[in-house]
Amino acid sequence: MSPQRQSPTVKIDIGDGAAIPSKKDRGLFTAWWVAFVGAIVILGSLCLSYPDPYWRILAFLPDGIVVTFQVTLLSILLSLALGLVTGLGRLSQNRVWNLLASTYVEVIRGVPLLVQLFYIYYALGRIEAFSNLPPLAAAVLAMGICYGAYMGEVFRAGIDSIDKGQAEAARSLGFNRRQTMALVILPQAWRTILPPVGNEFIALLKDSSLVSILAVSDLLRRGREFASESFLYFETYTVVALVYLLITLVLSKAVSHMESKLNYYDRS
């Protein structure tokens, strides 16, 4: 636990979120600015030069953006909780917990998210107990459960990456297993875990567009509704894509900022 001992800086590359820019990666750093400024300039100039239809489309979307954020935030909270339990379970000596967690990961990762959404909303809807589940809750449940499995693997890898000596030192100082995990391992693992968690967060935001299949009025569904009435497919999906891009770019920047703040030992 002494500061002289550098903990290994392990990078976990899991997930399909946006690339997270860091100052070390000049190419990506510049690319972020190109994409961000480009998206704003294109969106802004389209809205200013052709208020009809572009401004009309943009004005149609805000409540969809709110729903997209609602789904994303609630799902991420659920998936973090599930991920922690699963990640610990995957490393646990407790056979039952370990098996449950591993099976959960195997099953969920083997079924496409879209199928899971259909399953939780429409298939389980036939069962009395689930038939009153509102679409938003079903969406959050499905996305949270799905990403919980991926998050579990991230947690597992992060916890695994902490040097064994840390646990041994804590145990020899009289910490019990739980204390070791909660007070020594997890706080350190968090730094390793954060980038891939941020990545999952961004991936989840993008995948939240799938919930439009449950008639949840998210950003994509609002766009589809607009396009299906106005027949302005090119214009509508251009705006929808730009809005998604802007949101994920801002988020990836935020994650990279958090990451550099947490990198005590790695400042250059």
């Binding site: 038939s131 509102p134 008639a215």
Partner: peptide
């Protein structure tokens, strides 16, 4: 059909 299913399920 999906709308009818949701009506059938009482949503």
């Amino acid at each position: 059909g999906l709308a009818m299913e949701d009506l059938y399920n009482g949503r």
